[in-house]
């Protein structure tokens, strides 16, 4: 399990001492790590969308509803957060033509860096699952139908 960590050799582990102090404990909720990891994954070029098939289908329906506020930043991310450490699993869709190993390394590095710098938690592992390749043009940018009456 620990070999995933090797990608982040250049990231200084923030350690947990910043979170557990004599004056009291700082506890980071799961949703905080979810959102940071989601935003950090999307920042990387080559990542088209987040989430496994079911989550994306449900997300697409939810996006169409008024007042939904757009895609949830934590879609496709699950985390386990302890007092000092966090483990992160990410489902994503990459664009066609990218090198999946390079993109996953970049995602892993960015997620570890962002989560460790922002929360002070040590990230023990980031597991990526590439669920699909986006070929372009087959959904989303649909042409609106021309009006039938002028």
């Amino acid at each position: 399990m620990s070999q995933q960590r090797s990608a982040s050799a250049d990231v200084q582990p923030a350690g947990g001492s910043a979170l557990v102090t004599e004056q009291g404990r700082t506890s980071i909720a799961d949703s905080v790590v979810l959102k940071i990891a989601g935003v950090a994954s999307r920042e990387v070029n080559g990542v088209h969308a987040m989430g496994s098939g079911g989550a994306r289908a449900f997300g697409a329906i939810r996006d169409k509803m008024p007042g939904s506020g757009g895609q949830s930043p934590s879609q496709g991310v699950t985390v386990e957060v302890g007092e000092r450490q966090a483990a992160i699993d990410i489902d994503l869709v990459v664009e066609y033509g990218v090198s999946i190993p390079d993109v996953s390394q970049a995602v892993r590095r960015n997620v570890i860096q962002r989560v460790e710098r922002m929360t002070g938690l040590e990230v023990t592992e980031v597991n990526l699952s590439v669920d699909d390749v986006y070929l372009g043009g087959d959904d989303e940018e649909e042409e609106p139908e021309p009006a039938r009456v002028q």
Binding site: G24, R25, T26, V32, K35, E43, P73
Partner: peptide
């Protein structure tokens, strides 16, 4: 008294690029 701080949630910036600026 001992003070425990629980970060329950975080506000996500609207534009993903904005996080770079803030970080």
């Amino acid at each position: 008294l001992r003070v425990s701080v629980y970060v329950e949630d975080i506000e996500v910036p609207d534009e993903p690029g904005q996080s770079d600026v803030l970080a």
